[in-house]
Amino acid sequence: MLKRLAEVLRGMGHRIIDRIWRLGSGARFFLYTLIYSGESFRRIHLTIREIYFTGVMSLLIILVSAFFVGMVLALQGYNTLQKYGSSEAIGVLVALSLVRELGPVVTALLFAGRAGTAITAEIGLMKTTEQLSAMEMMAVSPIARVVAPRFWAGVVSMPLLAALFSMVGVLGGYIVAVPVIGVDNGAFWSQMQANVDFQADIVNGVIKSVVFGVACTMIALFEGFDAPPTAEGVSRATTRTVVNSSLAVLGLDFILTSFMIVT
């Protein structure tokens, strides 16, 4: 009995130490990525190529989702607001929800599922097939050549995607609110403009999406780089990318929001 308990405790301790160790190696990986970033800018086409694969390839899912999210927000918002006789505030509701929260957060979650998994699988497979080893043997740093361009591509893509998400979401909300429900066009926009603040809402939303961009891309890259070089290892790493990115985004969102609201 006692032995069993000790075993359970030992197992727990082992897992905790393992987590902390991974966190440490993740931090070191991040540091190296920053140090070896020079090439991503000197040879900008390396980064542009990755922006294509992470940003452009995510466009479709982001835009379609944004449109639906905006429409649903308008429907739900109208349903509640009309009870208080303030259905013109629907524009404010849609815009604020999108710009402050849903734009950055949903974009990051979709990004983790679309681009993050692709990054992890690609790098994991490059490791499995010894492409990374081969690169190292050719005196080329895989961090500089493979990791850093993908990192910067993700960091650049995320705020652009989030801005597109918010904008298309507002359009989706507009289409439901104005032509379909019949809210006054002028009221829709003017209420929105009177209540959405450039600094407090839009800039903070962009800050969030940049932070999410760093987190999601870094997690995807690290999981790929750290994956055991087997088919099973890569598939598990891909799953971990989605789980860890989602948790990181939601956790960071809470932290950032509390800072932004307090100040």
Partner: peptide, 28 residues
């Protein structure tokens, strides 16, 4: 690829401007 990335960057920047001007109060 360059073309698509260019389109993406311009569209993203336009969306940011749109948010600032049309949705936000930057103009007023």
């Amino acid at each position: 690829m360059d073309l698509w990335v260019g389109i993406f960057a311009v569209a993203g920047a336009a969306a940011l401007f749109g948010l600032a001007l049309k949705v936000g109060n930057l103009t007023s």
